[in-house]
């Protein structure tokens, strides 16, 4: 996982709520067995509308997505995170996220930033007024900065440390292998196996 400390880039305002993962990447794209090439599927149904915000050349190259509430609800597909990252996004800002999407994002190094609805709207309005405006998302300081404004966001210490170090979760867990083995020895005897 690529480490995340601070990121500065232009932002896209996505003024929609309940952006479920079926919209982020429709199911037809999930048939791939590789981890690459998902950027083509990002919002593929919505991108067919020439008026969709990602088709606006003013926002080309933006790396921060600023969405309405309940972003990433629904399906557990991590492909949604891969699609956003491969398209070029490093951060998604929203007032609320689907729990599984948020989890998946932090495993991959895509930073989900929760800000109050009015702050999200203020950033959206600022970016709409000036699409060239740069937004800084500072994980070290837990702060988003734009156009002279700043807003703090919350993230637990452990996830922040893991993102900033770019650490692989499995490697961390395997350090506790003794604990796992010990737990396994004490499991209830009636628990089923699949064999």
């Amino acid at each position: 996982m690529e480490a995340f400390t601070t990121h500065t880039g232009r932002a896209v305002p996505l003024r929609r709520s309940n952006v479920d993962t079926d919209q982020i990447i429709p199911a037809v794209w999930l048939k791939q067995v590789s981890r690459t090439g998902f950027e083509k599927g990002l919002f593929s149904a919505w991108r067919e509308d020439p008026g969709f915000v990602l088709n606006d050349p003013a926002y080309e190259g933006a790396s921060v997505l600023v969405s309405g509430p309940d972003f990433g609800t629904g399906s557990s597909r991590e492909h949604a995170v891969w699609a956003l990252q491969q398209y070029g996004f490093r951060v998604v800002i929203a007032a609320r996220f689907g729990d599984i999407f948020r989890n998946n994002s932090t495993k991959m190094g895509l930073l989900p930033v929760v800000l109050p609805g009015e702050t999200v709207e203020a950033i959206q309005a600022a970016v709409e007024a000036d699409p060239a405006l740069e937004v800084t998302v500072d994980l070290a300081e837990r702060q988003v900065r734009w156009a002279g404004e700043a807003a703090g966001f919350e993230i637990d210490d452990y996830t922040r440390w893991r993102l900033m170090e770019g650490l692989d979760d499995i490697g961390l867990t395997l350090r506790a292998e003794d604990d796992i083995s010990e737990y396994e020895n004490g499991r209830q005897s009636w628990l089923p196996t699949t064999v």
Partner: peptide, 19 residues
Amino acid sequence: AFGIGTSEVEHVLATQTLP
């Protein structure tokens, strides 16, 4: 019982645990 993403699928396959 809960749904997980592919990174967590790999984690459970490798460790039978989840943080």
